[in-house]
């Protein structure tokens, strides 16, 4: 069974690029361009992992994280923040809110995405055990 990834990213161009790469790698992908619809999709599809942007319309990434962590059914889904916002305070806030990793989009190669996702999922599984 393929791994389900929810991508919440307001930049359509970047969203399509990651989705293309991950689908190529065999992931099942959902795409959302704002936080609010992202939360809805996550509630409906219960993905294995979430790739989350921070600066988005309607509901930003931090608010999405807070919403997810309050929801018992969703709080254990690992979240990777993918943002170009790279202040130390932002990274700290993201991790404190429960994200498993925080990557600067511009500093990551698209082919690394697959490895990063698998690494986080493995860590998450070993913790559960």
């Amino acid at each position: 069974m393929s791994i389900k990834v929810a991508i919440v990213e307001d930049d359509k161009s970047l969203l399509d690029a990651i989705a293309f790469e991950l689908e190529e790698q065999g992931y099942e992908v959902t795409k959302d361009v704002d936080g609010e619809s992202g939360v809805e999709t996550i509630k409906n599809t219960k993905p294995d992992i979430i790739l989350l942007d921070i600066i988005m319309p309607r509901m930003d990434g931090f608010e999405v994280l807070e919403t997810l962590k309050k929801n018992e059914a969703l709080q254990d889904i690992p979240v990777i923040i993918l943002s170009n916002l790279g202040h130390d305070a932002d990274v700290k806030k993201g991790i404190e809110l429960g994200a498993k990793a925080y990557f600067i989009k511009a500093s990551i190669d698209i082919e690394e995405m697959d490895d990063k996702i698998k690494e986080i999922l493995e860590k998450n599984d070993s913790k559960k055990e």
Binding site: D11, K105, A106
Partner: peptide
């Protein structure tokens, strides 16, 4: 920050082509 986003787009699509 605003510069990073379009740069990411160029980089990722070029990487997809390169692969």
């Amino acid at each position: 920050h605003q510069l990073r986003t379009p740069l990411t787009g160029i980089q990722w699509y070029a990487q997809l082509l390169a692969k």
